[in-house]
Amino acid sequence: MQSITKRLGGLMKNRVYFLGLNFLSILLLFFTYRKMNQANKRYFFPLYLAFTGINYFFEFIVLVLTKAYEYDPKILKKQYFDNVFGATVSQLFVVPTTSLLMNLLNLNAKWPTLLSILMTGLDKFFVKQKVYKHFWWKTPFTTVGIQLFYVLAKFWTIQIIERKNKWFELMTVYFAVFVSYATMNFFHVALFKTCFFHINLYRNPYRSHVATSSVYSGISALIFMPVILYKKWYVTLLSMSLFISLETLFIRSRIITISSPPVFYSISFLTKLFSILIGNYVLRLLKGNTSSSTSTGSESRSF
């Protein structure tokens, strides 16, 4: 009885620490949006997704490819999916939120140092509480990594808001699509078991799936870009036809197994459609044209 109670206590402790931190991050996100300059509010969502996308790429290298550390929020049953859930939600809320806070509220130069110290303290605390585990990663890496990310986020913000840099706008749209597609792909597999990649890169099949799915999401986001930028019906048709053909080939080759064809193809179509819509919306925000049509037959504004 005591062992069961102890186990339940540990499970609840991890969930409370992890979800509590992310809940505070969401509150900070809303606070930042309310307090920021009205004229720059259209940049909030694009920058948020750009910062998240940068973090996703970093997490893919450090967490998935090299196994630097491991999260243990005890939310999902499958241990590796639980690990990735922890990483996904952290990179979706905690780090991007603090970057937005500093850059959009124009906080002074001491804040990056203060927030990196805070993040370092959280790193140590979570390791001690066994919510998070280091392998080759070291706490000082967190301090340096956060500082470097804040420098990059500041530079990115300047390129988007002040200089209207077209290449950074393009990369921001790409990150918006990638974050949307990769996040939805992870959750529909982890929660509903819709499909599974069978390319054995690692001993752990779930790690192999996440690695393959991440690369697939990154490539898919590139293919979506012409649909978003050119808004021609035949580009959309060609893109969707390519995906249907490719995924059908993967299924027949048993690279992907699916739980149910109707469910898989429906969710696959909806995730792609929603990702394209998010990309269109971010593009319109960056161009200051939030009222324009998202029709696939209309002309896009030139980069």
Results as ranks from 00 to 15, higher is better:
Val189Tyr: 06
Val189His: 05
Leu191Ser: 11
Phe192Val: 03
Phe192Arg: 10
Lys193Gln: 13
Lys193Leu: 07
Lys193Phe: 08
Thr194Ile: 14
Cys195Arg: 05
Phe196Trp: 12
Phe196Ile: 02
Phe196Gln: 12
Phe197Thr: 01
Phe197Met: 04
Ile199Leu: 15
Asn200Tyr: 04
Leu201Gln: 05
Arg203Ile: 04
Asn204Gly: 00
Ser208Lys: 06
His209Ser: 02
Val210Leu: 05
Val210Arg: 02
Ser213Met: 15
Ser213Trp: 01
Ser213Pro: 05
Ser213Phe: 09
Ser214Gln: 04
Ser214Met: 07
Val215Trp: 11
Tyr216Cys: 13
Ser217Ala: 15
Ser217Arg: 06
Gly218Glu: 04
Gly218Leu: 07
Ser220Pro: 08
Ala221Thr: 03
Leu222Met: 12
Leu222Asp: 07
Ile223Asp: 07
Phe224Asn: 06
Met225His: 08
Met225Tyr: 13
Met225Asn: 04
Pro226Ser: 08
Pro226Ala: 03
Val227Leu: 02
Val227Glu: 01
Lys231Ser: 06
Lys231Phe: 01
Lys232Glu: 01
Trp233Phe: 09
Trp233Cys: 05
Tyr234Ala: 00
Thr236Gln: 01
Thr236Ala: 11
Leu237His: 00
Leu237Pro: 01
Leu238Asn: 06
Leu238Tyr: 08
Leu242Gln: 05
Leu242Glu: 12
Phe243Lys: 02
Ile244Asn: 08
Ser245Arg: 13
Ser245Asp: 11
Leu246Met: 11
Thr248Met: 08
Leu249Asp: 00
Ile251Asp: 05
Arg252Thr: 10
Ser253Glu: 09
Arg254Tyr: 10
Ile256Tyr: 00
Thr257Asp: 08
Ile258Lys: 04
Ser260Ala: 07
Pro262Glu: 01
Pro262Trp: 02
Pro262Thr: 02
Val263Trp: 15
Phe264Lys: 08
Phe264Gln: 14
Ser266His: 13
Ser268Val: 00
Phe269Gln: 02
Phe269His: 08
Leu270Asn: 06
Thr271Asp: 15
Leu273Ile: 12
Leu273Arg: 13
Leu277Arg: 11
Leu277Gln: 13
Leu277Thr: 12
Ile278Glu: 10
Gly279Asp: 02
Gly279Val: 00
Asn280Gly: 03
Asn280Glu: 04
Tyr281Val: 01
Tyr281Asp: 05
Val282Ser: 03
Leu283Ala: 10
Leu285Asp: 02
Lys287Ser: 09
Gly288Thr: 08
Ser292Trp: 00
Ser293Asn: 09
Ser293Lys: 06
Thr294Ser: 14
Thr296Val: 11
Thr296Gly: 15
Thr296Ile: 14
Thr296His: 13
Gly297Ile: 07
Ser300Met: 07
Arg301Phe: 13
